[in-house]
């Protein structure tokens, strides 16, 4: 028989299922025996290389548990009123809102009243399954953008990151509803985490949470509220209180 391929060698090394004659072959063939020894050596090198990759701070089990319990409680409370669109429909709806936003500012636009009527609601409620929704991208014009986050429960986690794109992105839990008009995006948040990407450009950007100013970027200066729990070069994380 021919020498064994690398997939078979690796599978033998890891105790996986291979044909019986492959095992016999590796015992009797010096080149394949050497390849198996080399595969063992490679596994040790890779395990050692990966070993150093550990989180910088030790895991805080107590606060992680509390965070999970809080999210579970919120999800169970919110489940009854949350909506779920099938993913494809969700995407289509988000796109529709974006397109609608573009003509929203036109006087007499039928879209204006349609958006106000909240007709994005599906006709019948479907139990919510918790996933991050697709979210939306909102163009940022030179006049700037205000992102208004509403319906935020106690302790909602909001992460704001800089992006290199010319648009802002907003994602939150499934069931979140987005309404976009020129210079403004209103987000009815169903569950966290909320992840927002904003461009570090000349356009001023304001993010409000439950009607209060949470973050403002203007004239090259970043102001954040005292709800910010961590602020690094790439991201600011907020834990926002109740209404």
């Amino acid at each position: 028989m021919n020498h064994l391929d690398s997939a078979t060698i690796v599978t033998i090394r890891d105790g996986g299922l291979v044909a019986g004659d492959a095992r016999l072959h590796v015992d009797e063939c010096p080149p394949c025996g050497a390849a198996l020894a080399e595969a063992h050596g490679r596994a040790e090198r890779i395990a050692t290389a990966l070993e150093v990759l550990a989180p910088e701070r030790p895991v805080d089990l107590a606060s992680a548990k509390a965070a999970v319990r809080a999210r579970l409680d919120r999800r169970r409370d919110g489940g009854r009123r949350a909506w779920r669109l099938p993913p494809a429909l969700g995407r289509a709806a988000a796109l529709l809102v974006l397109l609608a936003g573009a003509v929203y500012a036109l006087p007499g636009s039928p879209v204006r009243s349609w958006l106000r009527s909240d007709s994005l609601d599906p006709p019948t409620p479907v139990p919510a399954a918790p996933t991050l929704s697709e979210g939306i991208e909102v163009p940022v014009t030179p006049a700037g953008l205000t992102i208004s986050l509403g319906s935020l429960g106690e302790g909602t986690r909001i992460e704001v990151r800089w992006t290199n794109a010319g648009s802002a992105s907003i994602r939150a839990g499934t069931g979140t509803r987005y309404t976009v008009s020129t210079g403004r995006a209103s987000v009815d948040v169903a569950s966290d985490p909320v992840v927002i990407g904003i461009p570090r450009g000349d356009a001023p950007i304001t993010i409000e949470a439950n009607g209060r100013m949470m973050l403002r970027w203007a004239d090259g200066t970043l102001d954040v509220s005292d709800e910010a729990v961590s602020q690094a070069a790439e991201a600011v994380v907020f834990l926002v209180g109740g209404a």
Partner: peptide, 11 residues
């Protein structure tokens, strides 16, 4: 990403 790791593990 340490923050994302905790967030995703919790989710």
């Amino acid at each position: 990403d340490g923050d994302a790791a905790e967030d995703i593990a919790q989710e």
